[in-house]
């Protein structure tokens, strides 16, 4: 927030003053591109040196997918300010849509991918309308209920989902002649998926719509006063956020070839939100590092597994104290005191 300087083009006006977006515009071209390039370079190094190590590839694949859903949550939770505790459900809906379409309907990967995005975004839009009516902790309860409903539906529709024991027999997919048959293929596909989710989220959050989400999040009345539709913003934010989670879910299905309802229970949704809080809800890099990094460390440092919840709790407390995540977002994106 900066109420002293002269407002510039592209700024967001709120009751508390003007939200300075100049830093945002600078970021569009430089830092993020560097970070993504570094991440891809690191991934390439790992693949080159560990091409034959199934354990590392497996863990990195899961870490990248968890990073992707955490980044996608930034849209609804971080920018639009919707206390969304159901991101794991959209991930699951995308995963199950892909499993059913590929295994039972026999469609190619691309059709399944579109189907996953469509199914997850439809449910996301529905939850977006709920987000229009309910705020903060009330919506949080509704999103938990949604997660439970989806999990129970996946268990109790065995003709469609194979029920509680999970979805078996998913075939290896072929993407323009590239068969996702090995751990290395899975890792590379997850890396591509993560990059797509990251860049799409980056573009969305740095667009006019991204500023509209921040405006609605900071001060709804002021946003309305300058012509931002709160209903449209919240609904589309939920739709986009869930669509990207659905995309990640599709990639989970084709890389793991087995899914079960308990993978998408409230535990996953809570974890994704915790990772987002730790990384910083509006920091895409922070979200990616927290979601992927915690998954990676959890699998690599098994000695601390018994203490992981305690450690996670301490890190969350630190993140809350720092207001903006352990990996702090830029100052122009931090919310002023008293707004959350």
């Amino acid at each position: 927030m900066n109420s002293r300087r002269t407002p510039a083009r592209g700024d967001v006006f709120t009751a508390g003053g003007t939200l300075d977006t100049r830093g945002l515009q600078r970021l569009q071209s430089s830092a993020v591109v560097r970070w993504v390039a570094i991440a891809i370079l690191a991934a390439g190094v790992i693949v080159l040196f560990n091409a034959g190590d199934p354990f590392t590839l497996q863990v990195l694949t899961v870490a990248l997918l968890n990073a992707a859903i955490t980044v996608s949550l930034s849209i609804s939770f971080g920018f639009a300010g919707i206390f969304n505790l159901s991101q794991g459900s959209f991930y699951g809906l995308g995963a199950y849509a892909a499993a059913i379409l590929i295994t039972d309907v026999g469609v190619p990967f691309w059709v399944a991918l579109l189907g996953s995005i469509a199914v997850a975004s439809i449910f996301g839009v529905l939850m977006g309308f709920v987000a229009v009516r309910l705020r903060d902790d009330y919506f949080a309860f509704a999103s938990i209920a949604f997660t439970i409903i989806i999990t129970q539906a996946l268990i109790n529709l065995p003709e469609l989902t194979r029920g509680g024991t999970g979805f078996f027999g998913i075939p290896v997919v072929d993407i323009f002649g590239w068969r996702i048959a090995t751990g290395r293929d899975s890792f590379l596909l997850a890396a591509i998926g993560f990059t797509v989710v990251f860049l799409v989220t980056h573009r969305v959050t740095r667009s006019f719509f991204g500023r509209a989400m921040l405006a609605v999040n900071h001060d709804e009345m002021s946003a309305k006063a300058v012509g931002v539709s709160v209903v449209f913003t919240r609904v589309v934010a939920m739709g986009l956020s869930s669509a990207l989670a659905g995309l990640s879910g599709c990639l989970l299905t084709v890389t793991m070839l087995y899914i079960q309802p308990s993978d998408f229970s409230t535990v996953l949704s809570m974890n994704v939100t915790l990772w987002s809080i730790i990384g910083g809800p509006t920091s895409l890099i922070g979200s990616a590092v927290a979601g992927g990094g915690i998954t990676f460390l959890q699998e690599n440092i098994r000695a601390i597994v018994d203490y992981r919840l305690a450690i996670l709790g301490i890190v969350v407390l630190i993140a809350v104290y720092l207001r903006g995540g352990v990996l702090r977002r830029p100052s122009w994106m931090r919310l002023p005191k008293g707004t959350r």
């Binding site: 790992i46 040196f49 560990n50 190590d53 354990f55 590392t56 990676f296 690599n300």
Partner: peptide, 9 residues
């Protein structure tokens, strides 16, 4: 990340 990956058993 690369070091941790290299530490795999």
């Amino acid at each position: 990340v690369a070091a941790l990956a290299g530490c795999s058993p």
